[in-house]
Design a protein around this nucleic acid. Sequence first.
RNA 1: GGUGAGGUGGGUGAGUGGCUUAAACCAGCAGUUUGCUAAACUGCCGUACUCGUAAGGGUACCGGGGGUUCGAAUCCCCCCCUCACCGCCA
Length: 424
Amino acid sequence: MLTINFIRENTALVIEKLAIKNFDGSEIISKIIDADKTRRALQLESDNRQAEMNNLSRQIGDLFKAGKKEEAEAARQKTATLKDEIKGLTQKLEKIEKKLQKLIEQVPNLPHESVPKGKSATDNKKIRKRSSRLKLYTGAMAHWDLAKKYDIIDFELGVKLTGAGFPVYKNKGAKLQRALINFFLDENKKAGYTEYWPPLMVNADSAFGTGQLPDKEGQMYYIKSDEFYMIPTAEVPVTNIYRDVILDAKVLPVKCTAYTPCFRREAGSYGKDVRGLNRVHQFDKVEIVQIQHPEKSYETFKEMVSHVESLVVKLKLPYRIMKLCGGDMSFTSALTYDFEVFSAAQGKWLEVSSVSNFESYQANRLKLRFRDESSKKMQLAHTLNGSSLALPRIVAALLENNQTEKGIIIPKVLRKYTGFDIIS
RNA sequence: GGUGAGGUGGGUGAGUGGCUUAAACCAGCAGUUUGCUAAACUGCCGUACUCGUAAGGGUACCGGGGGUUCGAAUCCCCCCCUCACCGCCA
């Protein structure tokens, strides 16, 4: 969430930048500015009345103690109207504060200056591409057919147990999951990330902190009896470790990684993109999160992008890195690079990672701050995260790209984790 | 699920209606002393909002929400959470 101070001081800039995200902010921003003015006038009035009340109360106390009962009684009469006034003012103030808060929550994060204008994924800008031409043998299959052929993923069984989009991995398919998770976590550990194993359900405060609530409520599974949300990504519990935390600047950057299953309702998804592993309700993902000083967050962004890139390279997957245009970016992000791997039998680019800098947008919701060493002032930190990596589409690409007549070849880096080098 | 004890600045922890404007100690910061380190001493040391060019004021906040009162960390009601023990259980 943007801070009210920033909006007040940079009104024109805010509207201009929101336009890059195809968000017409002129109306809402002027509403915010108005509400803020009202709020401050009310605050002043209410503070003054309360100061009067405090003085009066102190006097009454003193008078009682001095034994001047009549004077005290007289003063006490005066408090009634003042009390009513204060009550009215604080109620009004509360109302306007809530209104202001709601308005500000509806304003997306501003895009970084390098973000191009654009409407949808077709306007995303290619940053890098590495894809040697893959020659598949005649009769090469899509991963859902390979899954059946080698008995490694059972989609129908998942339907029986739970419903569509809950695949069951088995045999070498199950082992491959474990291998990938361990490989990713080990690589992250080597790059300096602290490993976590967080809860898979979070409370509403946490879901709000990273921005899933209120706008993405319908995308999360909700446990009604206990008011918990199933996490859609490890980003939620991991980033919330630092909710309401004031960090010492010396500890920056904070680097965390975690493997978790992720649960997404994917309400509104339909059609061909949901086939096989392309889009599922439960999937596994290793995530990286960093908390960094505002001046260094874009360096950190680069570092995270190249770290994720190193993983894709080690798996020898053809990939491309896309800078998302304003229209395709998430509500909370200032800059996002998507990683896509090419899944040869489908002939499709599949998104396997999304690295984002949220600047202080999440930190403001989280109240995640640090004390700046030179100015000694409290400041919002910057948060960043990325997938490293999401498993299903990596598996889809590995199966499709590495298939041969003899079976599916396991990439060299994974063999010490799988214990086998071919699925046949 | 049952019973009990709790929830107070970064930490420990005092505080049963107005000298609480939240003690004290620890941690932290600055200084004095000092071959160095340490110790000792002195001072500073919460957050948010708000008024002010500034200096400096004001208001709120003691788990959350209501209430009583001129005045609430303190009294009353509701809720949440934590801990301990018991029951059940992977």
